[in-house]
Amino acid sequence: MTNYSLTFQDVTKTFGRRLIFKNINQNLTSGNIYGFSGRNGSGKSTLVKIAAGIISPTKGKVIHQNENKEIIPEKLHNKMGFVSPYLFLYNEFTAEENLIHISKIRGLKYNSENAEFLLNEFNLYDRKNDYLKGFSSGMLQRMKFIFALLHSPNILFFDEPTSNLDTAGKDKVYEIIENEGKKNLVIVATNEESDLALCSEILEIEKFKN
């Protein structure tokens, strides 16, 4: 198991005058699955984006540490995996081309063995040479999981991970979340009861509005 931690220090976010959440202080560690829950528009995705370093908090700080050493923002991308409904891959490339380009842009050698293993796990191996523009929404969602897991990250962000998935797809995702949660730090932002049932701790965003 890796020794990875994510710390929110007084994290506050506002959009203009609208307060999304304030003074979040939390320490999240590897080997756990954390849930971010709240009604629609409560700021779950915003908190996930702040945690992943995609947007900045209005106030406060987010610290990523691996083996007790702080990770600088420029190096964070290779430590994390990210799945969300607002993430899109390249439709003009095939599934495998997407994975090759993404690995190379990350500065990593394309791990074809791992890619084939993940494509098999998510039932996409037979479609690896097909363009993503021909994929269904469920297949695209499964591709996002391969994108998130290909480089074996230490921290995983799953924002609404089971959207567009059928029962078999959901079961596979739950299996992945449980397995990853044993060795890495997993964060799930969702309203689904079945998704939250996997979490060891749940952060209610509504509690940070006052």
């Binding site: 995609i54 420029e74 190096k75 994390m80 899109f88």
Partner: peptide, 20 residues
């Protein structure tokens, strides 16, 4: 327009994207 900006943000440092 394709919504892939986030994908790029997740896989590389800003300087890499800029020079690329």
């Amino acid at each position: 327009e394709r919504g892939t900006t986030l994908t790029l943000q997740l896989i590389a440092a800003p300087s890499t994207i800029y020079f690329g």
